[in-house]
């Protein structure tokens, strides 16, 4: 259970994410302002997002991929930088569709 990043994104996790259905809308429902993230030291979103959608960039920013979002709300709650995350639900009918939960 060592915490290196390569361990986090194992093949199994990719498989589990692929098992869930997402009806992706062309527009992102959550927008992350990478310039605010540049001086964030905690970067809790990267660890906490259950879908692992927050990716640090080499220049110190954070990129967010909205496509496989569970719409759970974890990211805006752990984020302690005002204005970094603009959080909304996707347009009606889009986003995650659970079947066996």
């Amino acid at each position: 259970m060592a915490g290196t990043r390569s361990d986090w994104v194992g093949d199994y996790f990719m498989e589990t994410m692929a098992a869930t259905e997402f009806r992706v809308h062309p527009d992102a429902h959550i927008v992350v302002d990478g310039t605010v993230c540049a001086d964030c030291t905690t970067r809790q979103c990267i660890v906490a997002c259950p879908a692992n959608l927050f990716v640090p960039t080499t220049d110190g920013g954070i990129v967010f991929n909205y496509e496989q979002c569970f719409e759970c709300g974890t990211c805006y709650l752990v984020c302690n930088h005002e204005g970094a995350i603009t959080w909304n639900y996707p347009a009606g009918g889009h986003g995650v569709v659970f079947r066996r939960t």
Partner: peptide
């Protein structure tokens, strides 16, 4: 990360035999 915590729970010897061989159908949060 959350999926690592689940992986840890699934690997625990008290839990592993219950779920061995199960094919993942959905992941949710």
């Amino acid at each position: 990360r959350p999926e690592q915590v689940i992986a840890g729970l699934k690997a625990n010897h008290a839990i592993a035999p219950l779920i061995e061989g199960g094919e993942v159908k959905e992941y949710s949060a």
